[in-house]
């Protein structure tokens, strides 16, 4: 597999699978304003996924849809954090805080990538993701420092997802040898700083965990991923060769 192709897929799959989960909130959010906000965020994530998958596909003549609809689970390279099923709203905001803060640091660095296309995608995406970070931050603060129930739920969401965060910063030979890539391990300290700053302000406890999940970058996913893909892909696969 071409390095640049594989690297672009990692970023694209993170965005695509996130968009799929975010979109599940539409028509189910706690208030109408939030249906609109989560719709915006999901659309941003999907837009990033499309740009990245189009670029990845350009290396071997596949389209964004070939990559999204006709790859099997083991060929998806997203982190497991993105694919976990939606829990309650606190879980969603914990995930958005963790993921968007990571994406923000990543895209900010990637703006000066040696690869012009990736730099261009990152330049647009970094502004979108800044809004996602802000939205998640506001909610983590409100829920953490809101009522007893919201505090308990916020803490549970932060704790439940913490063991899925180390995967975001894994380094491997691919990111080390590819000049266009950002080695995510270089983002870890800044991420921890920012995220813990929000958690402290929210009056929640800092999560800790002795176990950290791994495997997404190698196409090893959670049991949930197969169902997510079954839903995403089934119509397209039922009509092979069709255009939509």
């Amino acid at each position: 597999m071409n390095d640049l192709f594989a690297y672009t897929l990692r970023l694209g799959d993170d965005a695509l699978i996130s968009a799929q989960r975010t979109a599940e909130w539409i028509a189910a959010a706690p208030q109408l304003e939030e249906d609109v906000a989560l719709g915006n965020i999901g659309l941003d994530q999907l837009g990033q996924a499309r740009s990245l998958l189009q670029y990845a596909g350009s290396f071997d003549g596949r389209t964004e849809d070939d990559l999204a609809y006709f790859r099997d689970e083991r060929d998806f390279l997203n982190v497991q954090l993105c694919e976990l099923p939606n829990g309650d709203f606190a879980f969603a905001m914990a995930r958005l805080l963790y993921f968007a803060t990571y994406q923000h640091l990543l895209y900010d660095e990637l703006r000066s990538s040696a690869d012009e296309t990736l730099a261009g995608v990152a330049g647009k995406a970094v502004k979108e993701v800044a809004y996602h970070v802000d939205h998640a931050t506001q909610w983590v603060l409100r829920l953490g420092d809101g009522t007893e129930e919201s505090h308990r739920r916020m803490q549970a969401g932060l704790d439940a997802l913490w063991p899925y965060t180390a995967e975001l910063f894994e380094s491997d030979s691919l990111v080390q040898r590819l000049p266009a890539a950002v080695d995510p391990s270089t983002l870890s300290a800044a991420w921890t700083d920012r995220v813990l700053g929000v958690i402290d302000e929210s009056t929640c406890e800092r999560p800790s965990s002795s176990y950290q999940h791994t495997g997404g970058r190698l196409g090893r996913h959670t049991e949930h991923m197969g169902y997510l893909l079954a839903e995403l892909q089934h119509v397209a696969r039922s009509h092979p060769g069709a255009t939509w």
Partner: peptide
């Protein structure tokens, strides 16, 4: 939305459903 058969259609549909929320507002 979760089953839209192309990414372009998925984006259009998400934007549409979001518009309807805006109309409600």
């Amino acid at each position: 939305i979760s089953r839209a058969p192309s990414l372009r259609r998925k984006a259009i549909l998400m934007a549409k459903v979001q518009d309807e929320a805006g109309h409600g507002l």
